[in-house]
Design a protein around this nucleic acid. Sequence first.
DNA 1: TAAGATTGAAGAGTCAATCTTT
DNA 2: AAAGATTGACTCTTCAATCTTA
Lengths: 172, 172
Amino acid sequence: MKTADMVWLGRRLADTGLLEMRAHAPEVPTAEFIVMRELLDRPPSTITALASRTGYAQSRVSTAVSGLVNRGWAQTRSDPADGRRTLVFVPGHIRKNAREFQTSTETETLDQLLAGRSPARRKAIIGALEELLDAFREQAAEEQPGTGTITQPEPDTATRWPKAPTASASAN
Amino acid sequence: MKTADMVWLGRRLADTGLLEMRAHAPEVPTAEFIVMRELLDRPPSTITALASRTGYAQSRVSTAVSGLVNRGWAQTRSDPADGRRTLVFVPGHIRKNAREFQTSTETETLDQLLAGRSPARRKAIIGALEELLDAFREQAAEEQPGTGTITQPEPDTATRWPKAPTASASAN
DNA sequence: TAAGATTGAAGAGTCAATCTTT
DNA sequence: AAAGATTGACTCTTCAATCTTA
């Protein structure tokens, strides 16, 4: 695969996903969407950790988080162990109301795109994407020295997408 | 795979490719790089056809093409069959060097990323990406009603693109 | 009329620098 | 010093509108 193909493919993938995203949550800025995804299944994260996991610049994450807080989708508190740090997390009641969205965003578009292929091929391709995703995630995790993430993966109670904002929307 | 994962993965893929691209051609804008890739192994294309194949807006392609022309990497002539149309193509002497350049940008980064996997897995994953690439290309081709390509439609040559040298050398 | 060149506004992001706070 | 909030300049891109011309 050529570099140009990689770039093009990446764009197609992202654009396709963005389209799907806007169909479900037209008002949510991309960065907030991505950060939210990162927040949902994890223990409270610092801004820096979120930056390296999402690939966004620190300033971008900072802004996105404040947007999420305005929406009532996330909360922050300062790290008791280190007052300079901000811990960001999704409050339980939001977490619980999010299933519908997460479920509905399960890769339909990709299946449609691959409609011409056999089910086995489709599955293989999507499986490969998942593995690539993991590889990128590992890379992102390595980039961040231990400091960033708080260890334990928390007994996750389903991952849901908030449907009812607690506060005002706006932003963006 | 969740929508957010698809977006994130797409971004990683594109950013990774972009990094690789800038290492080889720091001065070339992304859009020109992508359009060039599209131009290299195909018969002369109209602006509109390039737009639908690359996924860029018409205005963007128009600008990118004029950038390529300024660089001497592409040429345009008007379609003898329809004077309104601009046919864009890569002159033979450029084509040779450009191919070498493209070859040199054969994605190493992906292999590095997957270094932890077995060679077989690596190959499978990259193969899956190639297939996904094809699927997206087919989609892009469908979007463009017959108008797009001029002269010969040129049947799909699969992932492997023609290596046939077109003409002279020198330049660059 | 349709293709494409051109332009201006707006969005989304980066980068780099600065300021505040712990 | 280091985390993060904030800001400004810049880049890339889209979109929509307009102009030119075959």
